[in-house]
Design a binder for these strands. Sequence first.
RNA 1: GGCUCAGUAGCUCAGUUGGUUAGAGCGCGGGACUCAUAAGCCUGAGGUCGUUGGUUCAAUUCCGACCUGAGCCA
Length: 536
Amino acid sequence: MNSIDKNKNTFALTTPLYYVNDLPHIGSAYTTIAADVIARFERQRGKSVLLITGTDEHGQKIERTAAARGLEPQAHCDEIAAGFQTLWQKLDIQYDRFIRTTAPTHEAIVKEFFQRVWESGDIYLSQQKGWYCVSCEEFKEERELLEGRRCSLHPNKEVEWRDEQNYFFRLSKYQSQLEELYQTRPDFIGPSSRRNEVLSFVSQGLQDFSISRLNVEWGFPMPIDPSQTIYVWFDALLGYVTALLDPDTEPTLENALSKWWPINLHLIGKDILRFHAVYWPAMLMSAGVPIPDRVFGHGFLTMNGQKMSKSIGNIIDPVALVNRYGADAVRYYFMKEIEFGRDGDFNEKERFIPILNADLANDLGNLLNRTLSMARRYCGDKVPPISGKDIPPDNPLKAIGSDLGSRVAQAYENLAFSNATEAVLTLIRSGNKYIDEQAPWKLYKQGNQQAVEQVLYAVLESVRLAAYLLSPIIPNISNDIYQQLGFDTNFNDKTQINVSAAFIIHANWGILPNSQTLGEPRPVFGRLELPETGSA
RNA sequence: GGCUCAGUAGCUCAGUUGGUUAGAGCGCGGGACUCAUAAGCCUGAGGUCGUUGGUUCAAUUCCGACCUGAGCCA
């Protein structure tokens, strides 16, 4: 992070701008959940956060998909973009900007950026011949095609022969500058296995790539040659810049880059790493714009160990999943059970339901429930009249809780969501163990009121801290827990959360105020049952 | 073919500079308790740490070869 100003109080991050050829799939949801978790975490720490998501809407593939549906391209895009927004709402994604590359402001940004690259002398006209996969929107080498001239990524579509004059971007010119970037900023690409791949790719020598297309109507015309349209990727990447414009400001690069640039984190799937880690920085270098801090390519999801594909018919519909289990359950599973950066599996019966029941219902939810019941029965309506300072440092929960906040923060910073979750679970599990060891129900019968209060306070406070540290992942459950502990905090209030529950206070163990009135014990996460039908 | 990553208990994974009986969660067997969402706690079984050479007093941990799986090579 050498060149990164750690004191900067803003944090801008992006999901990919999702291609609107189809409704959102589970992979898009996965990326977006992770981005939202980071955004929520940074907001709690008091940063000004801008979470950018949106849709990439141009290109021949969209043109054809719309035509096949008998729709105008824009009508098709409107419908799919709305589908993304609906899903993000269901998943409690708090994005700040939803940029659509068909926005009028975007065209102005793309033109101005193009102009800069043009003036750098990095655009030239040349002949392009080869097999083109419309689904990838890319030229393919003969040797990478399957039998019958089919793209390996889209085996049911034949590639098309193209022989046309296109404008090219001088990527080759930036080879050494890119290599220097990777050297001086080792964290620019993550995880490190992906970084290695990029390094090896770049070291083989970079070739210029075409940034215009002939005979594609659905795109921005080339400023210097309106007979061609701008290549969809060139256009799409710049969506990250357009998204930075405040509403009602003049769409200029200067305005767009003034507050939030450079982006702190581009979160993407591993499939589009090359565009973000190679093409994108080169384009920015050409235009004289600083490079973002970090690009992280996470892994793919499999379904019961198998690659998901439409032809196999094992696609997870994210909307159906959230409708059935709720946002927190889905968010928790993906963040806890899948190591971010690596591929991970979704198995509803063997992992999804058992893990959620064990962690959220049995361990966390039940711990609150049993402790709250005792507290109300043995100590009245209020938090036991103890303060965190009264509890000795060798109390097992205090010992774990005292540096948990900083450890979890470190994990979130490293995008190690499963580590963050695991660390919090250690406290929760210790809470259950501690209760059984101390047996406050016995202490109460023995009339040892002081011990009862101390035990219950320590456990309630541990549940609170767990809820706080997990709130970026499970905001609704955390809300319920906080409410039952007598707070009126709302973890979904993104403008207030850094004030109402500031990290520097709430991430510590021992801050539960004993003046607070406890709420009714109600399960915060009901045990899940496997649906009767339709599960695999 | 070149390169990257992974291969540790039935399953998902920890194991940060090589060092006593290799860990966790889930699942499975047994037990004690009763505050609780039939949850929680204790306890047991279960691993030649992919295979094979080598370095070392000592390797899951370092080096080589090989096998298996995933991925990158425009």
